[in-house]
Computed example of a mutant assay.
Amino acid sequence: MISDAELVAGVGAVLASVPDPEIPAVTVVDLGISRGVRRRPDGSYAVVLTPTYTGCPATLAIEASVRSALDAAGYGQVAVVTELSPAWTTDWITDEGREKLRAYGIAPPERGAAAASLRPEVPPACPQCRSLNTQEVSRFGSTPCKSLWRCLGCAEPFDRFKCL
């Protein structure tokens, strides 16, 4: 029989391999969508997920991907639950996740930006050339949780995670 610690570690390793369906360069752990494994009052375990925002259209795809990965790894007994409270925040993106987003061409907000403001005064750095000479083009980007920006230095467009 596997210990509780081994189950939690094994499920954590599975979660760390599940890519986000909209941004496959990062995992559900990198984005902070996976809030971990919890023991429930009945003694069973559940993976807790929080989407990047309440109406995220990828929520069902994320749940299905996590369920599939858990089943394939032999963790079919672990439930997958979605919790909307507390709401996801960009502060939950890991440092590794922030670097993966930059490498993928998406500007993540700096840690702590969510607490400061929904529209910070400092523009995001271009993920291509790191210039701060950037401009928001549209409040809505390739997905509802991102806005569209362009760099006035290198002329490249890029998405930016909204500070939530």
Rank of each mutant, 00 (worst) to 15 (best):
P157R: 14
P109M: 09
L132F: 15
D95A: 12
G12I: 02
P19V: 13
R39E: 15
V47C: 08
K146C: 11
A114I: 07
Y45H: 13
E83R: 15
S131N: 04
A87G: 06
S65C: 00
S34W: 00
Q135V: 13
D91I: 10
A107N: 05
P120Q: 03
A58H: 05
I2G: 04
K146W: 01
P21D: 00
P21T: 00
L148H: 10
Q77V: 08
C163W: 02
A125Y: 00
C126K: 06
A115D: 13
G10Y: 09
K162G: 04
S3N: 13
L7M: 13
P51L: 01
P124K: 09
L49R: 02
G76H: 11
V8N: 07
T143W: 02
T52W: 01
V18N: 04
K146F: 11
D159S: 13
E22D: 14
F158M: 07
T82G: 06
I33Q: 07
A115G: 12
P57S: 09
C56D: 12
E156Y: 03
V80K: 00
A114W: 10
G76M: 07
P19L: 08
Q135G: 03
C145E: 03
A125I: 08
I62T: 09
A58I: 05
S131M: 11
L148G: 05
F140Y: 15
V122R: 14
T27Y: 02
T50H: 04
T54D: 10
T134G: 09
P19S: 12
G105K: 09
V29S: 10
V48S: 00
E96Y: 01
A58G: 10
A115E: 13
T143H: 09
V29N: 04
D91Q: 05
A46D: 04
A9G: 00
S68I: 08
L7V: 13
S3L: 06
R119K: 07
T89F: 10
E136I: 04
R35F: 03
P41E: 11
V122S: 10
C151W: 02
S142I: 11
R35C: 05
V11A: 03
V122L: 12
V37D: 06
E156R: 15
T82R: 08
P120W: 05
A25P: 02
K162S: 11
A9F: 03
A79Q: 14
S117Y: 13
P109A: 04
G32P: 14
I2F: 06
A116K: 15
D91T: 12
F158E: 03
E110I: 09
C154T: 04
L118S: 14
S65K: 13
P108R: 06
G105M: 11
V28T: 06
A13Y: 00
W149H: 09
L31A: 10
C145N: 12
E121V: 12
S65P: 01
T59A: 08
E22I: 11
S85T: 15
G12R: 09
L132G: 14
V66Y: 01
D42C: 10
A87W: 05
P57L: 13
W92S: 11
R98D: 03
Q77C: 07
A125Q: 08
S147L: 10
E136R: 15
V122W: 11
L31W: 01
P21R: 09
